[in-house]
Amino acid sequence: MRLYLLALNPTDSVTEGFLPAAARLGLDVTVLTDQPEAHRRTIPDIEVLECDVRDFRAVITRISTHHRPDAVFSNSDHLQTQAALAAAYFELPGKDWRAALRAKDKAEMRRRLAASGVDAVWSTEITEPLALDAPYPCVLKPREGVASEDVVLVQGPEDLVTRSKEILERRPGTALVVEEYLPGELHTLETLGDGHVRHVLGGFRTELSPPPYFIEERMVFVPARPEPVQAQVLAQLDALGVGFGACHTEFVVHAGRARIIEVNYRAIGDQCDLLLARLLDIPLFEHILRTHLGEPLPADLGVRRDGAARLEYPCADRAGTLTEAPGPTELTVDGVRLTYRPLRETGERHDLYGTNRDYLGVLRATGTDQATVDRVSARFLAERRWEIQP
């Protein structure tokens, strides 16, 4: 059976998660990408074909002129609609392209939720710097952005003009969304469905950097939410038509009310998916691929429920060259399994971005007692040093 995997740049989710899972399932894999050389360096044993994967017509043509597909899949935020359209063209299982578009287009998501009556958020789109009469503070972000890139809290009309001008200079032609700031504790909900059965895998409580930016600095696993909160989030996903394959949903809870921030219609990234597979002790990546092969999910995934986990993302606090940093590490301390992976090489120079691109590394910690996981993680980070020189 042949799996076509659509990708942009190489990611840990693909190279450490989905490709090994595809091999375990005995699938022949063809990677379609607009960055073929980067993938060939990363995965030399996998077939890689160059393709303008942002254009669904190019994807369909590339597949039609190659081997017959059994599944078309992507874990990229930017390629869900294209993968869904290609799968539909070849009459294969996949996501509803309309739901994929609603999830990716943050303005359309707001319109859909409001029209469905499940949640209404003040929101508008701009394509040039404007001083709007809006309910400040507001959040300004690209309509189809990802990973906190150019997401900023604005305090008033002048601030909105300044910030939007900065973003549009970096991203000419980009449509921006201005929406009311939603207060509350930030959480995620991780779901997996086959179009009929939907499993809730748990989620994370997310700690952010100080405003005006929204960098995810720390995540703590939460196995279950209060039923009314979870029901509200799932109702909003139903309104969007989201229910096939993996989905990573970010939402806030304030005074018992759950409100979606954004929907990423794919598996959670930044190595959280690798942690989830270990923590829950399930073949997570295989389950996701099987749904795209048309296989139903089991009624019971056999999820392990006694786990505790934490992810920490050491961040750069200034622009400059990383001159000292810890290397990859695997160890177990007091029953806590620690995995540290650097995300930036020593000797590299970077600006300060105010986004997830400021990550220097990621620490994954899993165990069975949250207090112990927290203590061991804090000690691990305190004993290591990251040095940035101007």
Rank of each mutant, 00 (worst) to 15 (best):
W97E: 11
W97Y: 14
W97V: 03
W97S: 15
R98Y: 06
A99E: 08
A99L: 10
A100R: 11
L101C: 05
L101S: 13
L101I: 00
L101A: 12
L101N: 12
R102M: 03
A103N: 08
A103V: 10
A103P: 07
A103T: 12
K104W: 12
D105S: 10
D105P: 14
D105M: 11
D105I: 14
K106C: 04
K106Q: 07
K106R: 09
A107H: 14
A107E: 13
A107Y: 15
E108S: 07
M109E: 13
M109A: 09
R110G: 00
R110V: 10
R110A: 02
R110L: 08
R111S: 10
R112L: 07
L113A: 09
L113E: 14
L113F: 11
L113I: 09
A114M: 02
A114R: 14
A115D: 14
A115S: 15
A115V: 02
A115T: 08
S116H: 13
S116K: 12
S116F: 04
S116A: 15
G117M: 04
V118G: 08
V118Y: 11
D119R: 13
D119T: 06
D119N: 05
A120G: 04
W122S: 05
T124D: 00
T124P: 00
E125A: 10
E125Q: 13
E125N: 02
E125V: 15
E125P: 01
E125I: 09
I126R: 03
I126Q: 01
I126M: 04
T127L: 01
E128L: 02
P129V: 04
L130R: 15
L130Q: 11
L130K: 08
A131T: 10
A131P: 08
D133V: 06
D133G: 00
D133R: 05
D133W: 00
